[in-house]
């Protein structure tokens, strides 16, 4: 496998990982597992960005991944805050129980 085909293999791996995360987000109902599936999807995109950066010989791919890492950290903080607030009101609730925006 030469170097260029290896780059394409990276893209294929990232696509499969993105789909795994997306399917997990659709079928799982535990909010914590859903957050983890979002992390999987973000990481797949990160891998794609770094591969693009390598294919185009440009540092910007890695810069964008840096920003994605920051956004992912902020997203996890807010998401876990929501999960904590939710389980305090109604312990053991899953995503299907959250039909009301109230309170």
């Amino acid at each position: 496998m030469d170097a260029q085909n290896l780059d394409l293999a990276y893209l294929a791996l990232a696509a499969i990982l993105f789909a795994i995360g997306g399917v997990g987000l659709l079928i799982r109902r535990n909010p914590l597992v859903m957050i983890m599936c979002v992390e999987l999807m973000l990481n797949a995109v990160n891998l794609t960005f770094v591969t693009f950066g390598k294919m185009l010989n440009d540092i910007t791919g890695q810069v964008i991944v840096f920003f994605v890492l920051v956004v992912a950290a902020a997203e996890v903080v807010v998401g876990l805050g929501l999960v904590v607030a939710m389980s305090r009101r109604r312990p053991g609730a899953d995503a299907d129980d959250l039909r009301l925006l109230r309170g």
């Binding site: 950066g53 185009l56 010989n57 440009d58 540092i59």
Partner: peptide, 10 residues
């Protein structure tokens, strides 16, 4: 896309 627009990797 254009190659090495902002900065080269190496």
């Amino acid at each position: 896309g254009a190659r090495s627009v902002t900065g080269q990797l190496a």
